[in-house]
Computed example of a mutant assay.
Amino acid sequence: MATELIKIDEVKSILSSFPDIIGKNTNSVKKCNEAGQALLDTIEGEGMNETIDQAAADYLKKVNVTLKNMDERRKPITQIFDKIRSFFTSQEKEIDPKTPTTIPGKLAAKRNEYAKYKYEEEQKRKKIAEQKARIDSEKASYQQAIENNLLSYFNMYLTSKIVELQDIFSRLTYANFDREVIGITVFQTDYPKAHFDKFNEEEATYYISQETKKEIRQNVLQGKYEEYAQRYKAKLLSIRQDLIDRVPSKRKELAELEQLRFANAEAAAKAEEQRKQREAEETAKRMEEIKRQEEVARQESAMKAQQSSIGGLFSSAAASVAPPPTNAKVKEKVVVLHQQGYLEVFQMWWLNEGQSLPVEELEKIFKKMITYCEKQANGKDQKYIKSQFIRYEADVKAK
């Protein structure tokens, strides 16, 4: 193959002329520069005029002829060097992994395809794991919210009934005592199922479906009526019994106040005020106890929700720290989808790098665009950029 592209005898013959060609070209360069320097010395001494300008024009024509002769003399040698370089580079290209048509290139492409497949599968796995973690977390949050709302709904009703029962006791007077005290003994202590069934508070969600929410809600409500009914009955029975136990002392206290009212109305009013204050404090204490129990229940609910979401958190963490595909290097590549995208690419580059580069470097980068603007300025319509940051200079050359 080597002898087909490069004939060794031809190479030897051409290279044998190398010293002679170097000598002739070196001599041409020397004579050309000597003649040119003589003209420059004349210009330095006498300045430019039409005669010297014509002599310089004739000299430059001869320079072009000399360049053509030098090029013709060295062509056989440079062409053989080009052939040698082309031969070696063509050999290298035959096994270059970066060339898609070579065998190594095809193998590299297969590896890249496989690495991309593994990377995409890993991204899918991470996306699924992250979505599952979000769903699990929202499930726990939703369940906690429903439990808390239901608890508040129940406690609000329980509180209203305790206040109602306590008010009956507080409103007892000497005159209405026998009639009103019956309200305490017959006060209903069963939690109405109708009230429980009216609970309909809801919470907004983003990841879980309506079917899932319905299932969670049913699980929360299951057995809750029986639990709340038991709590409701125990609390009201306790308070009712406490008030019934205090009925005799209440009767005696009201009778004493009635007698005191006849003897000293002012003292009686003061004693009545103290009684009301004392009973109000007792009611407030009972309300605080209910709030404390509700807070304990909320904390327990929050802890259960946190435990339920731990699995999701671990899944999310595992997805985020999962190693990339084996033997794969992942780089983000920009794919511009519309002409407008190039302006946004330029903007990012200019803000982060371009504006800090020296003018000489920017001139190289924008060479093609500057050439276009120069063509517009030298065209038939002569379009110019009007800016304080740009000026046009005439580039004058002799014909």
Rank of each mutant, 00 (worst) to 15 (best):
291 K>S: 14
346 F>P: 00
232 Y>V: 00
84 I>K: 03
276 K>N: 14
247 V>G: 03
131 Q>C: 04
288 E>F: 02
327 N>F: 05
294 E>N: 15
84 I>Y: 10
87 F>M: 07
296 V>M: 04
44 E>Q: 15
86 S>W: 09
356 S>P: 00
360 E>I: 07
249 S>R: 12
71 D>Y: 10
121 E>D: 12
310 I>F: 12
239 I>N: 02
360 E>W: 02
384 Y>C: 02
47 G>D: 15
244 I>K: 13
64 N>Q: 10
145 A>F: 05
177 F>Q: 02
324 P>K: 11
53 D>I: 09
172 L>Q: 11
139 K>W: 04
355 Q>P: 01
24 K>A: 09
94 E>Y: 02
141 S>G: 07
118 K>H: 06
399 K>A: 11
188 Q>R: 06
300 E>C: 02
127 K>C: 01
184 I>D: 05
111 R>A: 15
61 K>H: 11
375 K>C: 03
271 A>R: 06
67 L>V: 07
247 V>F: 10
79 Q>W: 03
19 P>V: 01
129 A>N: 11
65 V>Y: 01
321 V>E: 01
359 V>K: 15
342 Y>M: 01
391 R>E: 10
90 S>Q: 13
131 Q>M: 08
9 D>E: 09
238 S>Y: 07
110 K>N: 12
221 L>H: 03
169 F>W: 10
214 K>L: 09
17 S>N: 12
338 H>A: 11
314 F>M: 10
